[in-house]
Amino acid sequence: MSSATGKLDKVLARTRQRIEEGDYYEAHQATRTVVARYVRTKQYDEAIKLLVHTAELLAKANESSSACDLILYLLDVYRKAGTSPTSAAKGELVQLVNQLNAGKEPLVKKIAAEAIQWSGSDSELHHVFGSKFARESAPDTYEAERHLLQGTRESPRVLATMLYTWATGPGTDADSKDKNNSTLLKESAADVAAGLPLYLSRGVLGYLSAGNVRDARGVLQTFIEYVVAEHASNSALGQRLDYDRQEGSGSAVYVFKEVPLLNFLQLLVPTVQSKSPEMYNRLKARYAALIDGLDAWKSVLAGIAELYCGIAPPRPQMNMLQDLLGSFMSGGGAGAIKN
């Protein structure tokens, strides 16, 4: 055993003893002091081992703020040491992150941002953090969505589960309403059903906008599976949704009479895959009356149409007054003012 290894082992043992005795602050501060010394002398391996060791013990002791601080320090040492995002390095980080409660510790968001920057936007880390934010008892849906849209092939199922739970969970779930008021129950159930495509679109349109047809299909398939299952059990939607299962080229399409925008999203994926402007325009025209009322979809769909089908987005139309003012300012046209 080398002298350096022996010294590190003593530091690790002393750190463990402090934490077991409940002296968390001293363990945290002593670790930072020793790590700073290691970094100054470029003993990066020792610094990393000590940070991982102490952060893990603090996380297990529910000292999450101190653990998060040391994980951020670990990422800083990774950068200074030139540590690449290898499976081993990412594994150390993931093991620590999985012991944290993202819903209660705000520093987890900062860890996610720093880790993604260090790794060059690694898809596996996006999946880990997205899943972490999605599966907490109080999910951070926006953070989860942002990461899962850049994740791995496993991410669409996690995203679909979160979006469906979000769509039908407390606050929107008809079963959580006043069951003595049948009118309220009926309206709430209808609202839940009508909102399903709005939640699903966050995944489908998000993946398509990123050029990711595979995962758009994945989030769509899982979400629709939940809807069909709830149709049978009638537990979350609060109403039965009539549908027809139609076999398409490669996959089935579930046609919902009461929720036509679910049909649109299912048809959108194979349509953009065809790269046919004619097919896209026919699909959009068929659902135009519904889509025109969704301002949030318009620019996204325009971008998707251009990306896959080469359809240039419509130019914004100026009104007559704007046209006239433009003519005056340019000094041209029959109506231009002359001196």
Rank of each mutant, 00 (worst) to 15 (best):
E278K: 15
A13Q: 05
E143H: 08
S2I: 07
S251N: 05
I311D: 00
G303C: 05
V300Y: 00
E46S: 15
L57P: 05
Y44T: 12
A88M: 10
W166I: 10
G248D: 01
G130Y: 00
G333N: 02
L185T: 14
I116T: 15
H127T: 15
A289L: 06
Q239Y: 01
P106W: 09
Y280Q: 14
S276P: 01
S176W: 03
N98E: 08
N101Q: 10
L51I: 06
E46P: 00
N339S: 14
G82K: 09
N212M: 08
W166D: 15
A216G: 08
E114L: 09
K80P: 00
R315P: 02
M162V: 11
Y207C: 10
K275W: 01
D45K: 13
Q322V: 13
A285C: 03
G171C: 09
L185M: 13
K10S: 14
A174H: 04
Y199I: 07
V227I: 11
T222E: 09
L283D: 00
H53G: 07
G332R: 09
F129S: 04
K104Y: 05
W166F: 12
A89R: 06
D178K: 13
S176R: 13
T271H: 01
R202M: 08
T141V: 14
Y24M: 10
K90G: 09
M1E: 06
Y25R: 15
D175N: 12
V52K: 04
G333W: 03
G293K: 13
L261C: 04
S66K: 15
V39R: 12
S137M: 08
D122V: 11
R214C: 08
